[in-house]
């Protein structure tokens, strides 16, 4: 079981109009469990995932912090070492929207073997065998190798991109919005599949989504991102039943439920800040119902409650 530790990670995009602080001081650790990262559009979820894969596109850069696997800071690896030892091998990713980005002119087999191309020992027959095994793991037939993307349904395409992430048997799989483009019945099938893979292959899944319902179907630990920061993280039960951060609380009150009492849905006034010039202090303070003087000037640290932590000044006294 591999241990992932992310410490004070910052990823910024240096655009012509300013610096976008997309991930701004994120820390967490993970061992043998699955993690969900939830947050609204633009909160930095995908950027965090790409950072773990060391695939931040320009004009972005990891500006500070560390990412360690079993104690080795992989950010210090050069690209060659990262490519042969880490990416796809230890950590892989199902990219947001990948199922709709499959190349129409290549067969599924061709695209599935993409992660193998930097592994010279895995060519020809060996490579094909790996790809077929991966297809079987996601419930597809090996004959899928010869087909083209347009011949596949949405659910099948999503299974193909999941197979691609599994091909080198990684220990951690990042799944970025893996069900967002799917209808609800296929979504349930894909979530069932991810559960089975987690159990049978012993992988840790890092599920990224804006959907707090989907995430609760799968993960043990939930982290909530707001404006580039991980404002709360803890065991799923704690986050859903006893959220500490006002943002988490408000967000959960906005989730429509299918059963139970039909309580009024809440919305959070205002909008998330522009990450080029986030507000000083706590980034949530302009929208927070409990805002205090200190929130406007000073960035709250994590306050810890057994295995849950949240960045909110409300807990200063209790700490």
């Amino acid at each position: 079981m591999v241990e992932l530790e992310v410490d004070n990670l910052k990823v910024h995009f240096f655009t012509s109009t300013g610096t976008v602080r997309a991930v701004d001081g994120v820390s967490f650790s993970l061992k043998g469990k699955s993690l969900g990262i939830a947050g609204e559009s633009g909160s930095g979820k995908t950027t965090l995932g790409l950072a773990l894969m060391n695939l931040i596109p320009s004009p972005g850069r990891i500006v500070s912090g560390s990412i360690s696997l079993d104690g080795n800071n992989i950010l210090q690896f050069n690209e060659e070492k990262y490519r042969t030892e880490v990416r796809w091998r230890q950590i892989s990713m199902i990219f947001q929207g990948a199922m709709n980005a499959l190349n129409p002119v290549y067969t599924i087999g061709h695209q599935l073997m993409e992660p193998l191309k930097f592994h010279s020992e895995l060519v020809g027959e060996k490579a094909r065998k790996k790809a077929e095994d991966a297809l079987r793991e996601v419930g597809l037939d090996a004959s899928m190798m010869q087909r083209y993307p347009h011949e596949l349904s949405g659910g099948m395409k999503q299974r193909v991109v999941i197979a691609m992430a599994l091909i080198l048997r990684p220990k951690i799989v990042i799944a970025d919005e893996p069900t967002t483009a799917l209808d609800v019945i296929v979504q349930a099938q894909v979530i069932n599949l991810l559960k089975r893979l987690e159990r049978e292959l012993g992988i840790s899944i890092i599920m990224i989504t804006h959907d707090l319902s989907v995430i609760s179907e799968l993960v043990d630990i939930v982290g909530i991102m707001y404006a580039g920061e991980l404002v709360e993280i803890g065991p799923a039960e704690q986050i859903y039943n006893n959220p500490k951060h006002p943002y988490t609380q408000k967000l959960l009150n906005a989730v429509p439920r299918l059963h139970g009492k039909r309580t009024k849905l809440e919305s959070i006034p205002g909008i998330p800040p522009d990450l080029k010039s986030p507000p000083p202090g706590c980034r949530f303070h302009p929208r927070c119902p409990y805002v205090m003087g200190i929130c406007k000037v000073s960035t709250p640290p994590y306050f810890t409650f057994t295995d849950q932590k949240a960045t909110c000044w409300l807990y200063k006294e209790k700490a």
Binding site: I185, A188, S213, V219, A236, H259
Partner: peptide, 25 residues
């Protein structure tokens, strides 16, 4: 459809969803 709708309840992760119809539209 109702079988398949996810809900914000972490105890769901311990069970697989049984959806009464199979395949895709």
């Amino acid at each position: 459809l109702l079988d398949a709708v996810p809900e914000p309840d972490p105890s769901n992760r311990f069970k697989e969803r049984h959806v009464r119809i199979t395949g895709e539209i």
